[in-house]
């Protein structure tokens, strides 16, 4: 849920990148951190294993600036992808306003995508939140690789909510900001 501090003239939204291990969640955040105006972002905090796999989460605060007198921020988080870190994923989802589900487009990763997608909805439902009021985007990542599903097939396999879909290659940055923009606009529309 957003934190609206009228006294301090601030509004904060929480966006979570979700998806299976190695699908590109952290790569999205690293690209945003690298490319965006340094004045508009804070520190990129990562709690990762020695092998640089996300252990708990990555965190990157973005400042949109002052909008209608309100300092507007988006707090971007990733979750650990591996299924045995589900307890940590649930914690990161607490208070979420918008979710970007990062799907690995490679044909060989279908099972992991489906498992992670079902796990996301399980975890959101267990929070008891009204899911119709969450921002939600599916980012079809790794479109630069060969042996990938078509967008139509992946959409049919994963997008049961008929949510917006973007195509990306987080390594090159293609589609990274487009995806972020879609979900940010959604959460503002749904939460005010």
């Amino acid at each position: 849920m957003p934190l609206i501090n009228f006294a301090a003239r601030e509004i904060n939204y929480k966006i979570v990148y979700y998806g299976c291990g190695l699908c590109g969640k952290t790569t999205n955040l690293q690209y945003i951190h690298r490319k965006i105006n340094p004045d508009a972002r804070g520190k990129l905090v990562s709690i990762a294993t020695e092998e640089e796999r996300t252990l708990y989460f990555d965190f990157l605060p973005l400042t949109l600036g002052t909008v209608k007198g309100m300092q507007t921020r988006f707090h971007l988080y990733t979750v650990p992808g591996q299924s045995y870190y589900n307890a940590s994923r649930k914690l990161v989802l607490q208070g979420v306003d918008g979710v970007i589900f990062v799907a690995d487009s490679q044909i060989t990763r279908l099972d992991e995508n489906v498992e992670s997608y079902l796990n996301l909805w399980d975890n959101l439902l267990s929070q008891g939140d009204d899911l119709s009021k969450l921002g939600f985007v599916i980012q079809m990542n790794k479109r630069d690789l060969t042996e990938v599903f078509s967008v139509e097939d992946l959409n049919e396999l994963l997008n049961h909510t008929d949510s917006p879909v973007t195509e990306s290659s987080a390594v090159t940055g293609q589609g990274v900001f487009e995806t972020l923009k879609v979900v940010c606009k959604q959460v503002i529309a749904k939460t005010g």
Partner: peptide
């Protein structure tokens, strides 16, 4: 439909 979050007003702050 809009979600309601934590809202802080001047007096509370």
């Amino acid at each position: 439909a809009r979600r309601k979050g934590l809202v802080i007003n001047d007096r509370q702050l």
